[in-house]
């Protein structure tokens, strides 16, 4: 059984059918791309998958567990983590703290333990620091661990967002336009990072992207959305040569 099974989900905003009959099946370890023109409903799909919107029909199964209609927090705990198209960091907190917040549900102690500074506080905080530094090291952010997140350059902010998502120990990672606003060098570095995350953590990744170089470079499977509906689905090479896709999205 696939890690993520989505059957016929759909949602309307007013009279607009933003997404309809959307289905996808992602195997464990796959790197899956979701592409399509602006306004096709890609981010809406992400928002449905992460519980920001509740679909008016269809089901979502993660690892066999039905997560349809659950809220964002529950879905994250079930194992889906995401990044955002416009970066959403905890900008006034340090880089390290951003990742430690990602670890919130992995390593716990009560509020009272924290206020009273019981031994468990020091023990768990130390473990948290070590785990967070390991993650930052993987993303080559360890040398800026004590910077305020807002002071990082753009490319590193993107990386930090991925690191924070990975800290929640997800089964599936959703990346919403990770290369948006990046220059070719940064994009190349990002491709390597995504590749690396997948290898190192054996992670399943679904990403939205407009950068065709990145998509054709790393994605194995693609789904093309157009006006809220699936235009084409399949192996990357096949999809990118599909005449319908070329007409609707890539340009002839």
């Amino acid at each position: 059984m696939a890690l993520l099974e989505v059957h016929d989900i759909g949602i309307s905003f007013g009279g607009l059918r933003a997404v309809d009959d959307f289905q996808i099946s992602i195997e464990k370890g796959q790197l899956y791309g979701l592409i399509g023109p602006n306004g096709a409903g890609k981010t809406t799909v992400f928002n449905i998958l992460t519980g920001v919107y509740t679909p008016d029909k269809g089901t979502i199964l993660l690892d066999g567990q039905n997560i349809t209609g659950k809220n964002t927090m529950e879905i994250n705990r079930a194992g889906i983590a995401r990044t955002f198209q416009n970066i959403r960091l905890f900008h006034l907190l340090s880089v390290l703290d951003n990742v430690k917040i990602g670890l919130h549900n992995q390593m716990q102690y009560s509020t009272l333990t924290g206020v009273l500074r019981l031994p468990r506080y020091y023990q768990v905080e130390k473990e948290m620091n070590e785990r967070a530094m390991e993650l930052l090291h993987v993303f080559e952010l360890d040398d800026v661990a004590d910077y305020q997140a807002t002071n990082l350059p753009y490319g590193k902010q993107r990386k930090l967002e991925i690191a924070r998502a990975m800290a929640t120990n997800p089964k599936l990672l959703l990346l919403d336009e990770p290369a948006a606003g990046m220059n070719p060098n940064e994009t190349k570095e990002l491709m390597e990072t995504i590749h690396f995350v997948r290898e190192k953590f054996d992670m399943t990744i679904l990403l939205i992207e407009h950068d065709m170089k990145l998509v054709s470079g790393i994605c194995e499977q693609l789904t093309v959305l157009n006006f809220g509906q699936i235009l084409c689905q399949g192996k990357t090479a096949d999809v990118l040569h599909d005449p319908e896709v070329i007409k609707a999205y890539l340009g002839e």
Partner: peptide, 12 residues
Amino acid sequence: RDNRIAAESVGL
């Protein structure tokens, strides 16, 4: 405080 939507997305 810093970002409610992101806070939800990491399961707070």
